[in-house]
Nucleic acid binder design. Structure first.
Lengths: 181, 181
DNA sequence: TGATTATATGTCGCACCAACATATGCTCGA
DNA sequence: TCGAGCATATGTTGGTGCGACATATAATCA
């Protein structure tokens, strides 16, 4: 799931600027399973344009900053469909939160409480967003994917709420032992 | 969660070679929320040695390849505890699988079936691994983390099993329309 | 009026992932 | 018993891409 394929996937459902592609990646329906940055998107769009997989149209409004609106070409659509039908890479999950939880012995209980409460708040917001997004989406796969996300986030949220206090209680044991020395 | 902190975290629970650190990252108890590669670990260990956060002991057995066994220093332990108590970065989840599912219109049903069945098989193995790991681990945070992983993978597994056929049924609609043109 | 936010494009340094190169010992089937 | 393949082990390299920075304009708001 490199920047190239991500750009093609988003452009396949409508034209967009680099700014909008990034925004959809981190805020829109794609946001909970893709992630990217300007430093990846802009070079990717340049290369895709060179290769004829996307087209770029300059939109100039007097007195406004110029926009570069990208749209997918037939060749690009073929390349996208081809990429989708290739064997896929493994999902990636990296969690500084779980590393902190696993090493809770060395973490100050107050810090641990802050960390887990922030995580709970984050999941709550994500769940609300996913519920709201369910209605206004016409792609058949999108609904399936949103329901999947809801199911997983829900399980995650419930575990954290139920086991919050237990984690905080375990925190700091090694640290206080060290301080006592 | 850079390579530095990861090395310190693993070395904090016992000495290890670069090879073993990588193995624990992708196979051990850490495996479902960290990920790394040799290209990150070996340079990180060199830098940590230079900075005095870890120590390196050459273990030479005649007729065997030399091993470099790393262990954490008191200074390294301090740095690790300090890193744990800093504000943490966001969790990262990237899923080529969900991107494929979301765009299932453009995916051949046979390919979709293969992709989801592989994912189900993967989750089944992970769940079995997590159950087995539950017993033989003495860190207090590890049990909490393993239960969290089980809860989330379980939710994910059940959703996939229940909604497998629905996803495959939705697949390929756009592709066959295109082929018919 | 000035501060901040949203839109918009882009660059740069450093980190790091995937693949390759290299070397040895062990196991197991032909 | 001999070679093939696998596990152990260390490292390099090329390209990708993340995070931070630079720049610019319009709108909003105190």
């Amino acid at each position: 799931m490199n920047a190239r394929t991500l750009c093609l996937a988003i452009l396949n459902f409508g034209e967009a600027t680099g700014y909008e592609i990034r925004k959809k990646s981190i805020e829109g329906e794609f946001s909970y399973f893709v992630d990217t940055s300007f430093g990846a998107i802009y070079p990717a769009l340049s290369r895709l344009t060179d290769e004829g997989l996307v087209e770029c149209r300059d939109e100039v409004h007097p007195g406004k900053p110029a926009r570069k609106v990208y749209s997918i070409t037939p060749k690009g659509r073929d390349a996208f469909v081809d990429a989708l039908n290739q064997p896929i890479e493994q999902d990636v999950f990296k969690s500084p939160f779980l590393l902190t939880a696993m090493c809770c012995e060395f973490v100050d209980p107050k810090h641990m409480a802050k960390v887990i409460d922030e995580r709970i708040e984050y999941l709550k917001n994500k769940l609300e967003f996913l519920s709201a997004a369910k209605s206004d989406c016409d792609m058949p796969g999108a609904a399936w994917t949103l329901h999947y996300g809801s199911a997983v986030f829900e399980a995650s949220y419930e575990y954290l709420v139920k086991n919050r206090d237990a984690l905080i209680a375990m925190s700091g044991s090694a640290q206080s032992a060290e301080a006592a020395e």
